[in-house]
Amino acid sequence: TTVHLNGVTYTFPNPEEARKFVEKLAKTLNLKVEVHNGTYHIE
């Protein structure tokens, strides 16, 4: 599972880890999250 954040790409072997990371980040920084083909894009 891949996460794109400010031009940096993070790869998680575990989709659940990626989801938790994204949710925590989005909540902390009040960001918008979009998912395209299983890839998270955070703005």
Rank of each mutant, 00 (worst) to 15 (best):
T1K: 10
T1W: 07
T1E: 04
T2Y: 13
T2D: 12
T2I: 13
T2S: 11
V3L: 04
H4C: 15
H4R: 11
H4G: 02
L5E: 02
L5Q: 01
L5M: 12
G7M: 06
G7H: 11
G7V: 03
G7C: 15
G7S: 07
V8D: 08
V8H: 11
V8Q: 09
T9P: 12
Y10H: 10
Y10E: 02
T11P: 07
T11H: 11
T11Y: 11
F12H: 00
F12V: 01
F12E: 00
F12W: 03
F12P: 00
F12R: 00
F12N: 00
P13D: 09
P15I: 07
E16L: 08
E16V: 10
E16C: 15
E16R: 07
E16T: 09
E16D: 12
E16N: 09
E17D: 12
E17V: 11
E17F: 09
A18G: 03
R19F: 09
R19L: 12
R19N: 05
R19A: 07
K20R: 10
F21D: 00
F21N: 00
V22S: 02
E23K: 05
E23N: 05
E23F: 09
E23C: 15
E23P: 00
E23Y: 11
K24E: 13
K24C: 15
K24G: 06
K24H: 13
K24Y: 14
L25K: 01
L25Q: 01
L25Y: 03
A26R: 07
A26C: 15
K27Y: 07
K27W: 05
T28K: 13
T28A: 12
T28L: 14
T28W: 13
L29G: 12
L29D: 06
L29T: 08
L29K: 08
N30Y: 05
N30I: 06
N30G: 12
N30C: 15
N30A: 05
L31D: 02
L31A: 11
L31Y: 06
L31Q: 03
K32S: 06
K32M: 06
V33F: 14
V33E: 01
E34L: 10
E34R: 12
V35Y: 14
H36K: 13
H36G: 02
H36I: 15
N37L: 04
N37H: 04
N37R: 02
G38N: 05
G38V: 02
G38M: 02
G38T: 02
T39P: 03
T39V: 15
T39F: 08
T39Q: 15
Y40K: 03
Y40S: 04
Y40Q: 04
I42A: 04
